[in-house]
Amino acid sequence: MTRHYELLFVLKPTLVDEEVQARITFLKETLEKNGAEISAFQNMGTRKLAYKIEKFERGYYGVFYFTAPSLAIGEVERNIRINEDFIKFMSVKYENQKELRHWNKIVEKCNKQVTTTQPVDAPVQETEASPEA
């Protein structure tokens, strides 16, 4: 059964921009491989962590909004746990009507921002050419 999800992840601050993009495409591919349909991606940028994680004080935040079969989540989380560059992650299920309405609102907002500021596909395609790091 497909459900609505959101997946927040925090990347190490030591990565350069291209490496960050590579991790994002990696996550995107794993999601799509497991049958997820990505609706939006929210870039929260590098921000200060409220407490130290693995001795890092800052981290890169990103959020994916997608619909996926419920079995896919376990597999995606397993993949994230293997990768050491993800210092924190959390997936949230949006279930009842009120939550779904909020989910739709965020997706709409994210997509609007992307089209007005910069095309999100451009940096992604660049990293796809380079081999998986």
């Binding site: 927040l8 409220a50 924190k88 959390m90």
Partner: peptide, 9 residues
């Protein structure tokens, strides 16, 4: 949830 993701301490 915000505490877990280090958004608030």
């Amino acid at each position: 949830r915000a505490r877990h993701t280090a958004l608030i301490p």
